[in-house]
């Protein structure tokens, strides 16, 4: 692990920012029933930064993201190859259970998906309860701190006992963020978390991400290039190849990707010439 932190560049030549590494991807490829959906993803996710995955539809952003907490495990025919290291531990072959991995790598989905039969409070602590924690004091504290962290506490503290369906879309998504934060994860994966939200709710979530990165490393898939430019520190650009498999074209600091990319295709995409 210390070796990872000290190395100047990642072993496969992709440049990185030099900070401590939260997750390292080495030649990651995902295939479904033998058909490759994304390949050649090699980059380091630096701690306490926001890393965005951008690219047109079909470039494999979401597929790649879902490999990072093994959500493909239950898909029949799905295969993940290459290595994904969380703090130096291979998450597919190393000494880590899926349950532990998912409590250390949280996820927020494209559409807000709070549990509809649970109250706001129950949603916030659902991850802890799934993992067997029953002590009320711990749950109460986790509920308050995670809802505060998701900037939701002030508006819901008086109605923790109402079902989550009564919140607005933006509030529901922040509840989903709180639900993930309650497990105190090291990495938070976000799959187009604002694509179903209005601009104001989107702004709230974006501000939240900037605040949260001091506490958790964020990896976000986004269709919205302005969003990637606004909130991310590092950026991976993916593109669908000729065989319809997505591949990593370029990974660098967001500023470099948008202002001075190494690959001309990256420039074409960020300038809006296609996609």
């Amino acid at each position: 692990m210390s070796e990872l932190v000290e190395s100047e560049t990642s072993p496969l030549g992709q440049p990185r920012s030099g900070g401590p590494v939260a997750m390292r991807l080495e030649n990651v490829a995902v295939s479904f029933n033998g058909r490759t959906a994304v390949r050649d993803a090699t980059f380091d996710v630096t701690k306490n930064r926001v890393t965005s995955l951008i690219g047109p539809s079909g470039s494999g952003k979401t597929t790649l993201l879902r490999a990072l907490n093994r959500l493909h495990d239950l898909t029949p025919g799905a295969k993940v190859s290459g290595r994904i290291l969380l703090e130096g531990t291979d998450i597919y072959r190393g000494n880590i259970t899926v349950t532990e991995l998912r409590s250390r790598v949280g996820m927020v989905f494209q559409r807000p998906n709070p549990f509809p039969t649970m109250t706001i409070y129950e949603n916030a602590v659902s991850g802890l309860r799934f993992n067997g924690i029953k002590k009320k004091a711990i749950l109460d504290e986790a509920a308050e701190s995670s809802l505060r962290a998701a900037a939701l506490w002030d508006s819901v503290s008086s109605r923790l006992k109402v079902t989550a369906g009564q919140l607005s879309g933006g509030e529901q998504q922040r509840l989903c963020i709180a639900r993930a934060l309650a497990l105190d994860p090291e990495v938070l994966l976000m799959d187009e978390p604002t694509s179903a939200l209005d601009p104001i709710a989107t702004l709230h979530i974006e501000n939240l991400m900037t605040t949260l990165k001091s506490r958790v490393t964020i990896i976000i898939v986004t269709h919205n290039m302005q969003q990637a430019a606004r909130i991310s520190d590092d950026c991976a650009f993916l593109l669908m190849g000729e065989d319809r498999a997505g591949e990593l074209i370029e990974f660098d600091a967001t500023e470099k990707i948008f202002n001075n990319p190494a690959d001309s295709r990256t420039l074409d995409y960020t300038l809006g010439r296609f996609g």
């Binding site: 907490n69 959500l71 239950l74 899926v98 349950t99 532990e100 991995l101 998912r102 409590s103 949280g106 996820m107 989905f109 559409r111 998906n113 709070p114 549990f115 509809p116 659902s126 991850g127 799934f130 993992n131 989903c176 639900r179 993930a180 497990l183």
Partner: peptide, 18 residues
């Protein structure tokens, strides 16, 4: 919805708990 099952999985829940 499948998304609810996925939300449970992503929180580290075992399938029978979900």
């Amino acid at each position: 919805p499948q998304t609810l099952r996925e939300a449970g999985l992503a929180l580290g829940a075992k399938p029978h708990k979900i």
